[in-house]
Computed example of a mutant assay.
Amino acid sequence: MNGLLVFGQSGQLARELAALAPEARLFGRTEADLTNPEGCAAAIAAARPAAVVNAAAYTAVDRAETDADAARLVNADSPAAMARACAALGIPFLHVSTDYVFDGSGEAPRAEDAPTGPLGVYGATKLAGEAAIREAGGQWAVMRTSWVFSRHGANFVKTMLRLGAERDRLTIVADQVGGPTPAADIAAAALTMIGAMRNDASKGGLYHFAGAPDVSWADFARAIFARAGLSPEVVDIPTSAYPTPARRPLNSRLDCSRIAQDFGIARPDWQAGLARVLQELETTA
């Protein structure tokens, strides 16, 4: 996309955006340090792009519990500064958020206007970023997504492939349910949204985008092993049997009907995305 500036360079989403929009400018840490909000705003002002996507975030969920200041800078303060800089230039700004803004109660999919209640610092800082972007004015969109995977970086699929090849038996959490989402599909959705926003100043707002169908981590692991030709035994365990510094939401189901209605973007089939990622990993092995 001509004139697109992407914050992020080495992350899963940024790398998929680079593949789909090779003409986009990607700003890594050397071009824009996300712990420096003023520097991020200055980078936008200097680049004068036609649109901005923030694909960078502080995603170390457990480490954020003891590193709250850094998490807030990256997940809230810098996105707010980006949004204000885009508003000043009159250009669209799209930011990626998370299902962790919810408390994970119940079993119903959460719509965009459902009550929030983050369980930890990561979710709280992402929610603060959403609020600051809204308050910045201008044309903005926030896309909440969940359980991101790709051939890049560290993610559940790659961890399962490694552990499944090493072990005969794995215990996997079975009471957390959500939609695994291929990073490539998030990138495609983001580009579709940005294109529509550039053509129509009324477009934008808060949206959910996650893979279908919803599944537990344990059943997601089984699907990974089956498609990869691995055969470890998967033993279901509750979240309580796998304590972590930050609490995880049990219900990460997202109602994605609004993005379909406003942008014509359907929930991606994560099983097709998984097949694609496994093929990519095999090709690059």
Rank of each mutant, 00 (worst) to 15 (best):
E280K: 14
G129E: 08
V101K: 02
A47W: 08
G8E: 07
R151F: 00
P118I: 01
A154T: 15
A226G: 13
A136G: 09
A21Y: 04
L281D: 01
R267K: 15
T145K: 06
G178D: 01
Y242N: 13
V96P: 02
E107R: 12
T181D: 00
D255G: 10
L89T: 09
A32P: 06
V215E: 05
A212W: 09
G129R: 04
L34D: 01
A221Y: 07
L254K: 03
A14W: 01
D77W: 10
H95C: 11
T192Y: 00
A41N: 10
A50Y: 00
I186A: 01
G229A: 06
R162P: 00
P115T: 12
R15Y: 06
P115N: 15
C40G: 12
A141R: 11
L119K: 11
T244I: 07
T171L: 04
A184M: 00
G11R: 01
C86V: 07
T125F: 04
I194L: 13
A218S: 15
I172F: 02
P37I: 14
S216I: 03
Q261Y: 10
L230N: 06
R144L: 06
I194R: 01
M143Q: 09
G120V: 01
T159G: 07
N199E: 15
A45I: 07
I259G: 01
L4P: 03
N54W: 12
P232A: 05
F7P: 05
S78G: 05
A228V: 05
A14M: 09
G273P: 02
G179P: 05
D269R: 12
P268A: 10
R253A: 04
A46G: 02
D219W: 01
A188Q: 09
A189G: 09
V52Q: 04
G11D: 10
P37A: 12
A189T: 02
A43M: 12
L274D: 01
F225E: 00
A83N: 05
R198F: 05
I265L: 14
G3W: 11
P180H: 08
F102R: 04
R167K: 15
A132P: 11
A187I: 05
P92S: 06
R169I: 04
